[in-house]
Amino acid sequence: MITKKNVEHISWLSRIKLTEEEKEKFTKQLNYILDYFETLDEVEADVPPTHHILGITNVFRDDVAKKSISQEGALENAPKKERGYFKGPRIV
């Protein structure tokens, strides 16, 4: 059972501010969706997990510099920028 307090906690973890109305609604919905997920409890799965379907690991390439997006190109979509940097909100 997930409570409104749990929803507030995951809202904080995921950096999504919720209105009171959303908190109520999501508490209800998340509960019945999680109830449905409980069906997995029936399965005995004594097998390794599949993270990736093809099981490939450690794909390497030669460490060679290649052409990439210019600084201007990378900054083109930034809503706030200053002296060639992305500008973030104040930390302190």
Partner: peptide
């Protein structure tokens, strides 16, 4: 989108990882 991010965050959060995410990956193997 909010609903799915919230549920995903919950499924990966401390104490629930094994019950939801890891279990789902094992069922995926089956």
């Amino acid at each position: 989108v909010k609903r799915r991010i919230l549920l995903g965050t919950y499924a990966l959060s401390a104490g629930y990882y094994g019950k939801y995410y890891l279990k789902a990956l094992k069922v995926r193997t089956l």
